[in-house]
Amino acid sequence: MVVMTVWMITTASYGSTMVTFEDAIKRGLISYHVNTDYVANRSMELELNNNSNNPVNVQLEAGRIFYATQDIQPYVVTRPSIIALAPHAQDEVMIYARCGNSSAKSPLTDTRFERTSMGPQLLVQALNELNNLRINNNSLAQQVVWHYTNGHSLNSIIVYSDNEKELLKRICDNENAEFPWYQKHYAASQTGNDLDFSNIPTLIQGDMQVVLTQPTNIQIKLYNSDGKSVKTISAFLNQPAGQCTIPLNINLSDIATGDYKIVIENDAGVKIDERSIAV
């Protein structure tokens, strides 16, 4: 027999206050300092001081952005946390936060952060969905953040599991956008820091569905914007008639940036279907 209890934070019994970070700052209950220290795959360390005579539980919100003084990426908090502070106590906690500007460099240990504000509503909403779905994929969190802070396309949000697909579906619903038919992968940054964006697309993955009225050989070809065939991606020989799903795995390392069309042709060169992609 074991006694199992679930923790409950109460404010009434012990007189502690549960406040959002926003409120705590506005009311002067706390002061903060952001440091950069790479610990346990994270780099944002938040130092908090309780300026009051009472214990305070500070709720750090997902979607809060901490801006650096120089042209350095801001931190975007991706996972909310609760920091319990005794009266006049100080605490340092590591925060799950991602880079908020893909074109800037990641913070260094001497980077200073001067101000904070909440991010746009859609970003906050997306991060809340991510946490509600208990998704702990930090790369995905980063892709979601860059989608909102830098306008990265929905195709750059890489989802694998059902949970992750559900997140993307909710993001699409929130934006009234169509679920992307392909995913565009980027290389890891050469700096080795996963907060940096490489801007080097590596792979496009997706599925195309076609109906064939007779068995045939089909080829997947890449056409550039001038309508010129650039590359044969793959060939499916002896493809039976009926519905078929054509998986696409396009390695982009030898494909120049631009807009392309993926064309499914039969071996007589007759077009069966086509889709647009942006490399």
């Binding site: 199992m4 409950m8 934070i9 319990a84 502070l85 605490d91």
Partner: peptide, 18 residues
């Protein structure tokens, strides 16, 4: 992490046996 005052209570929500 410094010692905090007791901020939480243990609410006995359920007794589970496994």
């Amino acid at each position: 992490i410094k010692v905090n005052a007791v901020l939480f209570m243990l609410g006995a929500l359920s007794i589970l046996s496994f």
